[in-house]
Amino acid sequence: MNTLPRLGVGIGWRPEIDLTVERLPGVDFVEVIAEGVHPANPPESLRVLRERGVPVLPHAVSLSLGGAEPVDRSRVAHLAAVAESLGAPLVSDHVAFVRGDGWEAGHLLPVPRTRDALEVLVANVLDAQAELPVPLALENVAALLEWPDAELDEGEFLAELVERTGCWLVVDVANLYVNARNLGSDPTAFLDAVPWERLAYVHVAGGEERDGLYHDTHAHPVTRPVLDLLAELRRRVDPPGVLLERDDQYPSDEELAAELAAIRAVVESHG
């Protein structure tokens, strides 16, 4: 499959803000955390949205595609079932690992940018794609730490992953900002290396500075530098979709609507 739908501007659907998402103006699509959805009985609010023609995209956090172990087939099967249940045009997870050695990290950890890690990631992605009914997109993660001895830079790593698996990309500009702040990486070098023809959509989120590090909290307003990175991205590509992630400390409907409008303004002002 070589084309994906135009998505527009969207927001991460969460059970705590289901009614908000339903009544917010300017929501063209939503994303739902796949692990929280029972395929036989998805939330009523998602049915309401789908009836209005709003695409619902399952976003997984637990496949651990960057992990050393072969992909857990039951997790891929669940994601596939959620995609079927929601009539989703694509699904996504991350370039990350979340478990190993018998332990569960509980959140997304960066993979080492080595040949070994890339080869294993490619094999895992190909395995997962074989079981999925729709295209798979992979997202760049935020990191507080860096692996030593990288053999490839982040752009090279992603470009080769895309070339060898045909996967799509979710580019998270908030995560780019986090890594620039915490690790000193160059976000524009990353943006220059992304194979934009494989962009599925973009993530935007808020965060905060704590103890000298910038944390991707999804619990604070979107900051100006993150919107500036979105504008930097927009200079390179007209993104098929841009989605706001907010997971905690939910603001008023008006504030969320204003954040969506700010995102739309950036995307449309560079047309």
């Binding site: 050393a68 172990e69 050695d101 950890l109 070994d116 080869e119 094999a123």
Partner: peptide
């Protein structure tokens, strides 16, 4: 999928598993 795995897959996975285990043990233990 095993039959289709490329040469060296098992060795690469072992090396990556050791590296990731080291970091995970530092993080959770």
């Amino acid at each position: 999928h095993d039959a289709a795995r490329p040469d060296g897959d098992a060795e690469r996975r072992r090396r990556l598993a050791a590296a990731q285990a080291g970091l995970l043990r530092a993080l959770v233990l």
